[in-house]
Design a protein around this nucleic acid. Sequence first.
DNA 1: GTCTATAGTATGATAGAC
DNA 2: GTCTATCATACTATAGAC
Lengths: 188, 188
Amino acid sequence: MPVIKSSREEAVEAIMREFRNSGYDAASLARLSAATGLGKSSLYHYFPNGKEDMAKAAVARTVELVAEAVIEPLTGVGSLKARVQKAMTGLARFYNGGKASCLVDLFTVGEAEAATPGLAKAMAEALLRAFAGAAEEAGHPKRQAKDIAERAVVEIEGALVLARALGSTRPFQRMLARLPALLLGGKA
Amino acid sequence: MPVIKSSREEAVEAIMREFRNSGYDAASLARLSAATGLGKSSLYHYFPNGKEDMAKAAVARTVELVAEAVIEPLTGVGSLKARVQKAMTGLARFYNGGKASCLVDLFTVGEAEAATPGLAKAMAEALLRAFAGAAEEAGHPKRQAKDIAERAVVEIEGALVLARALGSTRPFQRMLARLPALLLGGKA
DNA sequence: GTCTATAGTATGATAGAC
DNA sequence: GTCTATCATACTATAGAC
């Protein structure tokens, strides 16, 4: 999908989309060039270290978006139930209703780890912390809250994989529907 | 009769391992050659269509192993509880305790889908059917059994992703520990 | 069946004009 | 900042000797 962009921020957005669609190894410079509407030289102007820098920028932008869509709602103001619901809306938006993949998955395969060392792990840990905080706030003891957070991230990642494999967003939608009860422990 | 693996069968085993380690796009012919100990020409002798044929053979072998490790135990003889436990052991073995990835995940990204069209989906559906059968046998109504099976596959795939991201098999082990209760509905 | 050698293409990356 | 043109390398795949 050749969308003409000009600014670096717009390029990063397109690059992130391309990585989330193709994974790291299949996202060639030719594809990234087409996705951004920028020639290779322009890409190297913005990202001097090439694909590696693009991957790092894509992860950085992803971290921002996840924080905005999921983590900030969870740690913000308002009733816990309302904040969890906001986070579900954020998850649905960020993962495009289950159609978009997660870099925690795609960037832990193949050559990606060498380009973005530790970044996928850090993203996963940020999600774990945010969900654990919510579960603790819901009244679960610390240990149990960590387990619940792990289950939440496991369900998100797994639902995205299954949705991709089946070509249906249903598994993701059903996962979103059961997440609040998991986090709140039926106290919703 | 002694089971002597043909050179091709051994090659398929090594190729499957390489694809499960690197994903489709990062598994170059050079890596596949190194993994099998066969030169490129030998690989083309066994797999005339090259990487595409290797990917198909890897999936076919994976389907065999999943059937053997998970599906046959679930649909076999013995008490349901014992069969579910056998399937958990099979899952632990097949996914190397959480260290190995799943082709349902890796082969739905990048160029893999073109090489093995529909195969990852078929694998996911086979797992869903097997788990749904077990859940139904445990007394869950058909509709609920399908939901439970979906949750089981979601948990397996998600746990593998998180384990990979964190560099720890713990999430996979904890997932295995809670799967029986999910399938049996506490009636274990 | 396996080897060496190599074809043809795509890749990541640069140089230099404008 | 963006272009065209190009580099060196790695890729998939093939040919032909043995």
